[in-house]
Design a protein around this nucleic acid. Structure first.
Length: 420
DNA sequence: TCTGGGGTCCTAGGACCC
DNA sequence: TCTGGGGTCCTAGGACCC
């Protein structure tokens, strides 16, 4: 019999920070988003003080956090990514049917006897905690949606593991419909209005209604809650379809030239990602918009175009992006945010030939980009940069006053251990 | 009075996820 | 002063083609 395990790291970012700070054990810890905008992770102690993720902006909570003696960290995604890799590597020792679903969770498909399931989950949990230092919860069931539901229960239990058998109506009726995977705010409101309040109610919803009001996504959700697998298991990671880089400015920006610098930096980062994944892009989109939280004239627009040949060459990205930016830019507005999106990505070796133009692969541009990446990954990101991104200034500069060291990925930030 | 049918592609917007 | 960022999938409507 095949079962789905869902392994999810508890308050992942906060747990990562605590690995290197044993002095924080038992204390409330939160991690902030880029720009120190929101809380994006809170450990159980912080949650029990009432702190939730993505609720109120950090600046409105800061005083209370200090009063509550909560340890505050700025996001350190380089560290979290490195720890995530370790967790996933360990999990893949257990099953080669693994789908890494996000930075902190993975589905495993396993065929064991039912009476072995809990033992395996406990074993896995202990190994990840002992060897990596991250606590995880494990939800087990027959479909992904039910495994997610099992996870909701597992998270609330001290042992951190739960097996949801098919037709366990008492359990499904204890899960609010809003907590079901695939039900967000809008669908949640619709469902409650219709009297569908729990996962059990949802599993009994007429399929036609689900199809009509929640598209095929809703229909799949209902079927999965009834133990019918509808969401396929992707053990081979799909190549990504888009790469986005965008950010809010620390302060509002008026001028085309400031926007150009920001866009230039986004192109640098997007290009790095493209080459890291050995992909080429066929198209690029640029967007800009004003601050919707302010009561002043609003404006936002995007524009897209295709490249002459599939490329991963940063100067080309910048050239096209700047042209698009000039198309969408209107003077007189105060801009908050801008970004680029690369789409129609293909793998390097799948690039179609072109009779009239030299392909990017094996070009001198590619060699230059490879050298650039070697310097920037070996040293500090941005060691080598483009003049169009501005020199010694970064309009995208993030507020991140409380970032921990990148213990695992920078030699200069490696932890020091002193013997007494 | 009555104004094809079917297919594809593109885009914008909505909904969801972490 | 300060309100995240990066993804996926689905749908409807318009343009266009034969």
């Amino acid at each position: 019999m095949n079962y789905i395990f869902l392994v999810d790291c508890n308050s992942f970012y906060a747990s990562c920070e605590m690995i290197f700070r044993p002095d924080l054990a038992g204390k409330p810890v939160v991690v902030l988003s880029n720009n120190d905008g929101f809380i994006i992770a809170a450990n159980s102690q912080a949650k029990s003080l009432g702190y939730k993720t993505i609720e109120k902006p950090f600046f409105m909570l800061e005083q209370q956090l200090i009063k509550d003696k909560v340890e505050i960290f700025s996001a350190n995604f380089e560290l979290y990514g490195a720890i995530s890799k370790r967790v996933m590597r360990l999990l893949s020792e257990l099953s080669n049917r693994i789908e890494v679903y996000s930075i902190d969770e993975a589905f495993l498909e396993v065929s064991f006897n039912e009476n072995q399931l809990l033992d395996i989950a406990f074993y896995l949990r202990k190994r990840i905690l002992d060897e990596i230092g991250v606590p995880v919860s494990v939800g087990i069931s027959m479909t992904k949606t039910l495994a997610k539901a099992a996870m909701e229960i597992a998270k609330k239990r001290r042992e951190g593991v739960f097996y949801l058998k098919p037709d366990q109506h008492d359990v499904l009726s204890s899960i609010p419909v809003n907590d079901v995977w695939g039900v967000g705010q809008k669908y949640g409101e619709k469902l409650i209005k219709k009297g569908v309040k729990t996962a059990l109610d949802l599993s009994r919803l007429q399929e036609l209604w689900a199809r009509e009001h929640m598209t095929v996504v809703g229909l799949r959700c209902v079927k999965e809650l009834n133990g019918v697998p509808c969401i396929k298991f992707d053990s081979v990671p799909q190549t990504r379809k888009t790469i986005q880089r965008s950010a809010s400015f620390g302060h509002l920006v008026f001028t085309l030239s400031d926007l150009k610098k920001a866009i230039s930096i986004h192109c640098e980062r997007a290009g790095e990602k493209l080459r890291e994944d050995k992909l080429l892009s066929l198209g690029i989109l640029v967007h800009i918009h004003t601050n919707p939280h302010l009561e002043e004239p609003q404006y936002g627009r995007s524009a897209a175009t295709n490249f002459a040949i599939p490329t991963a060459d940063t100067p080309t990205l910048i050239k096209y992006a700047h042209k698009l930016l000039e198309e969408v830019y209107l003077p007189g507005y105060r801009y908050l945010k801008t970004g680029v999106l690369l789409f129609d990505l293909i793998e390097e070796d799948m690039a179609p030939g072109n009779l009239f133009r030299q392909p990017y692969i094996d070009s001198k541009e590619q060699k230059l980009m490879n050298s650039l990446d070697a310097v920037n990954t070996g040293l500090e990101q941005g060691t080598l940069a483009f003049a169009s991104s501005g020199i010694g200034e970064n309009p995208n500069k993030m507020r991140q006053s409380k970032r921990s060291p990148r213990y695992l990925t920078r030699w200069s930030e490696i932890p020091e251990v002193k013997a007494k």
